[in-house]
């Protein structure tokens, strides 16, 4: 325990190119880019599947199947296969981000799909009956009603990405994972534990921030008055960690 506090309290660890603030910034940068890319792919695709009902079986199997792929193995394969095709730092960054995105898309996709599919058919029917065009139904009814599950997918994905970005240090990327991996290499438990604590706190903060955004973005009318079976079912479809 002392090792941990000594390491964290040392001002030298809080400055410079390999200091804690820089590592946190790197970690957030990897995670942010990944999440944006994954959301840009997963949300529209999930909305489309939920809206049209096409490819449902594929989505469920993809989500379940991806969960069984060991993250670390996938990361190493990507770096070994894709890395040699590129030069410099890019050789590690591109395959790592690629793997992060591949892992983040399924929970986002599943959330968006389940959210739209779970919209009350009566509300959808009424929207159509009032003369809303298909895109209006999607934008004004389906997406707002699906937001709680879209967010639950995004938050699962964010946790997954923050966790996997930690592993990326083992393929010589930056981020907070550096402290865990370097500490291991130098037999410096204080550094390992300090880094681990920072990662844990960062993950919680990211989840907290997303929870805050969700609170603002989701209509109070969708607050869970009843503990619905629907969210129960989704909780089994979405959460993943590494």
């Amino acid at each position: 325990m002392n090792l941990l506090w000594t390491w964290l309290a040392d001002p030298a660890h809080w400055q410079g190119d390999d200091g804690i603030p820089v590592r946190i910034a790197e970690h957030l940068a990897y995670s942010g880019v990944t999440l944006l890319l994954a959301a840009a792919i997963g949300v529209p695709l999930g909305l489309w599947v939920g809206h049209t009902g096409r490819g449902r079986v594929l989505v469920v199997n993809l989500v379940n199947g991806m969960r069984s792929v060991p993250t670390l193995g996938l990361l190493f394969v990507a770096v070994l296969v894709v890395g040699p095709l590129l030069a410099g730092d890019i050789a590690f960054v591109v395959p790592a981000i690629f793997v992060l995105v591949v892992l983040a898309v399924p929970p986002i996709l599943a959330g968006a799909y389940a959210g739209v599919e779970g919209v009350d058919p009566g509300a959808r029917d009424a929207a159509r009956g009032m003369g809303m065009r298909p895109l209006e139904v999607l934008a004004k009814v389906e997406v707002p009603c699906a937001l709680p599950l879209i967010f639950s997918g995004l938050r699962s994905a964010a946790l997954q990405v923050v966790a996997t970005a930690t592993l990326a240090a083992s393929v010589s990327l930056g981020g907070l994972g550096r402290f865990l991996i370097d500490g291991q290499a130098y037999r410096d438990y204080g550094q390992m534990a300090g880094g681990a604590l920072l990662v844990a706190v960062l993950a919680m903060l990211v989840d907290l921030v997303l929870a805050g955004v969700q609170r603002v973005a989701v209509s109070p009318g969708l607050a869970p008055v009843r503990t619905s079976r629907r969210t129960g079912r989704l909780s089994r479809l979405v959460p993943t960690t590494t």
């Binding site: 946790l159 966790a163 865990l180 534990a193 681990a196 919680m204």
Partner: peptide, 17 residues
Amino acid sequence: GLLYTIPSLALFILMPL
């Protein structure tokens, strides 16, 4: 749920504490 947010590598490392 909060425990679930801790990345696995970090949790492994913190366990000895």
